[in-house]
Amino acid sequence: MSKQLDVSYFPLLDYAEAWEMQKSLVKEIDGAKRNETLLLLQHPATFTIGSQKHPEHLLWNEQQLRDKGIAVFEIDRGGDITYHGPGQLVGYPLLALDAENMDLHGYLRNLEQVIINYLAKFGITGGRKPEYTGVWVGNEKIAAIGVKFNKRRQRRGFITSHGFAFNVASGIQHEGFTGIIPCGIEEYGVTSLEDCTGQRFAVQDVARELLPCFVEVFGYEPVIEGGLV
C-alpha cells in the first residue's frame, strides 16, 4: 500500500514564511508527528542563493533590487542563485529517505523525471544535461532543482527540503532571470511551459495536473489538504 502524502497549494507565499514552514514540517515528519508532505506554491519575486555562493552571479545592485521589489535570501539548499516569482510553480517535497532508499542522486533524478513526464503530456521532450541538475528543453532550462538533505535525529536517513522551480508563464525568462546568471550557467538560456507550447496555463492548474506525475514517480497516495480541490 502506498504511503500517504499530504499536499497543499498556496497561490502566493512569501519566501521567508515558506522557508520557516519547511523547517517546522521537517521536524514534525522526523518525529512521526505528520505525514510526508508536498508544498506546491508561487513566490513573490525573490532571488535565492544556495550553498555554492557566487556574489558575482547577482547582476543587479541594491537600488535595482529595491526598484524591482525583489527580495534576496541566502539559504541552506545546494546550488547557486536562482529566481522565483509569479508564473513559476515551486514544489517543496518533504520526504523521508530512510536507510533502504537513501540514493540521494536518485532522488534528484526522480524530481527531474516528474517534470519530464509532465512535459511529455504536451509532446515536449524534456531532458537532462549530465553536468547540470535540472530539466531542459533543448539548450534552455525549464525547471531548476536545488535541495537539502536534513539528517534525521533518531534513525539513519534524511528528510528532504527545498525542491524544484518549474517555469510556467511566457516571458518569465525576461523577468528576474535577467538580474542573475541563473545557477551560474552562462552558456544556456531559460524557457517556460507557455513558450514551449504556445498555450496559456494557470499555475494552480499546472500544480493539479503535475501531482499525478509526482505520486507516480515517488509512489505515494496524495491527501489534498488545501488549494487544489
Results as ranks from 00 to 15, higher is better:
Ser8Glu: 14
Ser8Asp: 10
Phe10Arg: 15
Pro11Asn: 14
Leu13Gln: 11
Glu17Val: 04
Trp19Glu: 11
Lys23Tyr: 03
Leu25Ile: 11
Lys27Gly: 11
Asp30Tyr: 01
Asp30Arg: 04
Asp30Leu: 04
Leu40Met: 13
Leu40Gly: 05
Leu41His: 13
Leu41Ala: 04
Ser51Trp: 03
His54Gln: 13
His54Pro: 14
Glu56Cys: 06
Leu59Ile: 14
Leu65Gln: 05
Leu65Asn: 08
Lys68Leu: 07
Lys68Glu: 13
Ala71Val: 07
Gly78Ser: 02
Tyr83Ser: 01
Pro93Asn: 09
Leu94Glu: 01
Ala99Val: 07
Arg109Cys: 02
Asn110Leu: 05
Asn110Ile: 00
Ile116Gly: 05
Ile116Met: 13
Tyr118Ile: 07
Ala120Leu: 07
Ala120Pro: 07
Lys121Phe: 05
Lys121Thr: 12
Thr125Ser: 11
Lys129Trp: 05
Thr133Ile: 09
Gly134Asp: 02
Val137Pro: 02
Gly138Asp: 09
Asn139Val: 07
Glu140Trp: 03
Lys148Ser: 09
Arg155Thr: 08
Gly157Leu: 00
Ser161His: 04
Ser161Thr: 08
Gly163Met: 01
Phe164Arg: 02
Phe164Asn: 10
Ile180Pro: 09
Ile181Ser: 09
Ile181Leu: 13
Phe201Ile: 09
Ala202Ile: 11
Glu209Arg: 12
Phe218Met: 13
Gly219Arg: 15
Tyr220Gly: 06
Ile224Tyr: 15
Val229Glu: 09
